[in-house]
Design a binder for these strands. Structure first.
Lengths: 289, 289
DNA sequence: AAATTAGGGTCAGGAAAACTAAGCCATGCC
DNA sequence: GGCATGGCTTAGTTTTCCTGACCCTAATTT
């Protein structure tokens, strides 16, 4: 019963947030990704927390970590608390700037689907300011400060565009493509994140060729190259529609493979009728299936 | 509808906490006191928040601040969220160290009332470790990491000791004190925080003398000086009982003024039956009125 | 009117926290 | 065996956070 020397200090908020994320996502690496820091930072935070408590929150295993009984018992409360905090922050933001809508989406979608729709949106609701952030993966809408999230998915949210894949190329190149087998003779562009698109289409078309060509890390860049005649790209209907309509790209083969996933729009919170978010959703849903 | 350049970042947690405290307590100075920082730090945090939002949270007035409509609308949600966070932290602490009880109290109470009771507590529950923190003012139990708070108050909590004031001094000095009027002839010790005690007693005793003597910032120090014969101290029954019982101090006059406030014990949370906190409360309540 | 008090705002500087980068280790899978 | 995954460690750097000293204003006191 000694009078403990250290005056009790509240545990640091950032460390608690790191613990919560790690507990919820089941790993330090995943938590680091969500928080936008390196895994080392999460390691340090959790360690500081455990030191302050004098008890372990995770069991370290060769591959990954697992919550201890203590950690598991505590995690839920923190998740709720940080959810409440994020909600409060969202309310604050919405009231502070009610005419600003934050949208998170893939870079390719931002550039090839969303961007072409902005002029119409601006015309329909000039008072609304849309802020677009390109992310590689869908954000945690309960936490990240976005109002809308627009990502490809098979279910959930609101479907704003169906998708299908099929080869596209510049008109000049199309002359050399009579049959799918001709693809072996031209460069076949592909995107690193959507590497499976070619296999998907080739299998559906019953073609055995193995296409070769440059790989891009940005789909929009691959599209640009296709427009420039650099090769044949596996096009996503939702993303090349504009170029097809303008004749800058054409589809040399009739076969299309419908994808199970379409472009889907999630709202972070219930949208008040008439709010800026609701108006944006309405506009983006125009022409949806 | 421009694509806003800054990628939206979550607002800093510490700034949100500062805003919440300022909103709840109605001022930056009060918030700074609760958070244990200087007012300038709170100013900076709120300013950073307002800058990030592009909107004001407080109206600055010559004397103090007032929440704007925006700030008032947002504050409640943050208070709830931080309350939830504090609860989660308390659960974590309690599970991590179930045999440790953190008590917050006045320095004088810690030394003169609590400390003498610790040996009995240790004997009754040797497995429990009591950590005592001396504070000048009662903490916000919903937030600060204490299990128990022991402070003088007229209502609330659980009364563990009544209090009364009356002059006390070393036996050697008592010979010179036949009537209250004799107080004018000896040094009268007083504590800076309890400056009104003398007036209270003198009024009740119907004495018109104006006592003079050294002022202490620590009541325990004043008691020590009184024991050493440095003068007459306005004694608090609850705090000088031990010295009176041992004959190191005596009360030269029979008049006692009962105080409306007694020593009261608050628990931060409901105490599970049989928990360490419950045991400590039980022991400290022994002999309570 | 002058002084005092109470509450904020501002700024420079310094301490502490947070983060990154790079390398290490162990395990499990191909 | 080789590689990938996931976490740990350390050193060094950036950023945040806070203090301390000062100024400002309005209300209250003298």
């Amino acid at each position: 019963m000694p009078v403990a020397p250290p005056p009790p200090k509240s545990l640091p908020l950032t460390a608690l947030r790191a613990f919560e994320a790690a507990a919820r996502l089941g790993g330090f690496t995943a938590a680091a990704a969500e928080l936008g820091v390196t895994p080392g930072a999460v390691t340090a935070h959790v360690k500081a927390l455990e030191e302050g408590l004098g008890a372990a929150l995770f069991e370290r295993q060769s591959k990954g970590v697992r919550l201890t009984a203590l950690g598991a018992a505590a995690a839920g409360g923190f998740t709720e608390a940080f959810d409440a905090l994020a909600r409060a922050e969202a309310v604050l933001r919405a009231r502070a700037a009610p005419q600003v809508v934050h949208v998170a989406t893939l870079p390719a979608i931002a550039q090839l689907w969303l961007s072409p729709r902005l002029p119409a949106l601006r015309a329909a609701a000039p008072e609304i300011s849309v802020s677009i952030t390109a992310l590689e993966a869908p954000p945690n809408l309960k936490r990240a400060p976005y109002d809308l999230s627009l990502f490809p998915a098979a279910t959930g949210g609101r479907l704003v565009a169906v998708d299908a894949v099929f080869p596209v190329c510049a008109p000049a190149l199309a002359d050399r493509l009579r049959r799918p087998e001709d693809l072996a003779a031209v460069p076949c562009l592909s995107d690193a994140a959507w590497a499976g698109d070619w296999d998907l289409w080739l299998a559906a078309a019953g073609v055995a060729v193995r296409p070769r060509g440059p790989v891009f890390s940005l789909y929009a860049l691959a599209v640009e190259e296709a427009v420039n005649g650099a090769g044949v790209l596996m096009g996503h209907a939702a993303l090349v529609a504009d170029h097809l309509a303008r004749g800058r790209l054409i589809a040399p083969f009739p076969q299309r493979v419908a994808l199970p996933q379409g472009l889907r729009l999630w709202s972070a919170r219930p949208m008040p009728r008439g709010s800026a978010v609701a108006r944006v959703v309405e506009e983006l849903s125009r022409g949806a299936p």
